[in-house]
Design a protein around this nucleic acid. Structure first.
Lengths: 226, 226
DNA sequence: GGGCTCGCTTGACCTTGGTCAAGGACGGCG
DNA sequence: CGCCGTCCTTGACCAAGGTCAAGCGAGCCC
């Protein structure tokens, strides 16, 4: 049981898979499917051997550390189309943090061994991946330097578009329980998030308690880049 | 004739070289020195084979494309401590843009062949570089999402500190002819740049027409991170 | 030298988003 | 059913930086 076509779309948005190309990616993933997690379910624990990396296909997951006093510190939040835990895997050690699903989620795991074998067989692949990493680095530096270029509503629109499985037409996406989580994910305060959502109403975005419905993803996408 | 010690400091600030580690970097660069370019001199042209990448040690260079109507579009501006053209090199094709020195500059070129050989000999190196790239990515994401709180004066201070060869004490750095270029490089308008410079006067930064003198680099660095 | 252009600075005003603080809305629980 | 805590929204205010527009100074060409 492999991935469905919309799932492939999402997987191929990840820079790492883009770098490898669709053919090699498909060969590496084979017909393994994503695993489904419930809200609060563990993906891996701190200290587990880092024998692979992950690609989130649907839902949300958080990376967290437990401080000595038992308090949890959220290190990062991932959502659809993002890969994570590659660092630990490339270094070949153990996970320095735990990961759990924040909402129901589907997550694909890719074996380190398979990636390693692919790179050894075909060292050019390493260069492709480095090229992708460099490109992404440059892009992020740009983002830092001209963060002003995109307003809060635009960043939210962009985020919703990435979440949506479809690239045009209507869509509905699920939000994790707390909206403050999304706000921090997008680098803004909950208040700004709330206000910005109001401004998106004019573009066919309706927000319910735990989900968002979009009248036309393509229209929202156009607004996000503008 | 290898690099001088302050030059090494600057080279090792580049993430790519950090990833490889000082030993391999030194082995790869060997005793090749940087080439000196005059203002307006070509570093490479669009369409040249991408047989290496570059590290800017002193001065400024711009990456540009010529549109069909002959108009020049500046794609990026580089200054001390930055590497560029890695993407084209990793992909092993031709340069998709031209590059020329905007001010007198010293630029080090690293052969693709040497890097390629190092990676082929020692595929683990590719993983190390990927791990470093991923780590840097994560770090940049953090910077975007949390630490976007750096004011214009702070960004300028940070920029000047990176430019300076020394890490403490007084320094003088050269600016390219138009300050608007620096402003765009730092993601702000020339007006804001001008005003922000005024605020740095209190920290021992004196601006002349084409250069800046800094009373104490360490003090400026402290302000930049604060 | 006088006018000219071009880059830089300065001033007044506006938009964006952060901050602080005060309400709602909903669910859990006694 | 009402009390309460949590999350979300809303409003008033503020600081940073963008925008528009005018002034200034240096080089340049006649």
């Amino acid at each position: 049981m492999g991935l469905s076509d919309p799932d492939w779309d999402i997987v191929m948005r990840a820079p790492l898979f883009k770098a490898m190309g669709a053919t090699i990616t498909r060969a590496m993933i084979g017909d393994r499917g994503p695993k489904t997690y419930g809200r609060g379910e563990r993906v891996f624990d701190e200290g587990d051997p880092a024998d692979g990396f992950f690609c989130l296909i649907e839902g949300w997951a958080k990376l967290y550390r437990l401080r000595e006093d038992g308090e949890e510190v959220v290190v990062a939040i991932f959502s659809a189309g993002e890969t994570f835990a590659e660092v630990a895997m490339f270094l070949g050690g153990r996970f320095p943090a735990g990961c759990e699903a924040v909402s129901p989620a589907r997550i694909l795991k890719i074996d380190a061994a398979k990636l390693r074998r692919a790179v050894m067989d075909q060292p050019q692949l390493a260069f492709d991946m480095l090229a992708a990493a460099s490109m992404r680095l440059r892009q992020l530096v740009d983002e830092i330097e001209h963060l002003k270029a995109r307003s809060a509503p635009q960043r939210i629109a962009d985020f919703f578009v990435r979440q949506a499985a479809a690239t045009s037409g209507p869509a509905r996406i699920a939000l994790p329980y707390e909206k403050a989580l999304i706000a921090s994910r997008l680098g803004m305060k909950p208040e700004s998030f709330s206000r910005a959502l109001g401004k998106l109403a004019g573009l066919g975005v309706a927000v319910e308690r735990e989900s968002v419905s979009i009248a036309d993803v393509a229209r929202l996408a156009a607004f996000a880049v503008g």
